[in-house]
Design a protein around this nucleic acid. Sequence first.
DNA 1: ATAGTAGTAACTATAATGGTTACAACTGGT
DNA 2: ACCAGTTGTAACCATTATAGTTACTACTAT
Lengths: 139, 139
Amino acid sequence: MKQISTRFSIAVHILSVIAITNGNDCTGDFIAGSVNTNPVIIRRIMGMLKKAGLVEVRPGVGGASLLKSPEQITLLDVYRAVNLIEDNQLFRVHEEPNYNCPVGRNIETVLQSELKEAQSVMEQRLAQTTLSRLTAKFK
Amino acid sequence: MKQISTRFSIAVHILSVIAITNGNDCTGDFIAGSVNTNPVIIRRIMGMLKKAGLVEVRPGVGGASLLKSPEQITLLDVYRAVNLIEDNQLFRVHEEPNYNCPVGRNIETVLQSELKEAQSVMEQRLAQTTLSRLTAKFK
DNA sequence: ATAGTAGTAACTATAATGGTTACAACTGGT
DNA sequence: ACCAGTTGTAACCATTATAGTTACTACTAT
């Protein structure tokens, strides 16, 4: 199966680096070195984090800093920032079943409500973990 | 973002049809008509459900039936049957971060444990919904 | 002016998905 | 014994997301 993209984990990595360095000379190239990937990947994800209002970047000279404190940034915030998804639905449901069949007629509505519940509890669990909680566990 | 494949929702659809028809003349082509897709798709997914011990198919003559009662089949059973995933990890984490960086050194372990938790609560929610609970809501 | 940085566009390779056609193997009924 | 209907696969295809790369413009402090 297709797993959830590494954009999410990289975004958390990026924010952790910014949090730890306290925004000191935290350029895209520096972060790319820590993540061990191409700087453009970092810039792209940083763009999403900017759009979500989580970070700001000093234009020209470079360097990123957090717009919210690490205690206020949760994994759900990051997840939502980088995983823009159709209708915010993690689970995709097959379309246009046969409405002449009692199953085809009902499956979408009935199943969707259960899947939304499952997605919701996952997201609420993500919302319980803050960035500061994560970085506190670093050794 | 890439959503979770419709294999899952189709598999639930398949099992619902079998449950409702009570395994009466429930051929792949018939189910394909209800799902409104190609019969081969149904056979492929049915193969996974067979491997997971959820259904059996009469060879030659055709027709599927449940190997467990609808009260005993949960959405998690179905999810696990059709979404075989590397290491059973829904979230993918970027590999080979820079171990010379305190973030790169710790991010994998620390983040993984949180993500596993989030995945786990979602799966436990799926486990609470049985096939019979679903079909009972059909109108 | 220049060096270093950010922001994008454009391109590539890879993989998963959803679908299709084709074919072999099996079964029950005639 | 044949035949129709079915299952189980293999092979192929188009589409899409992902992850990465190169290249270029624009901006800022020195």
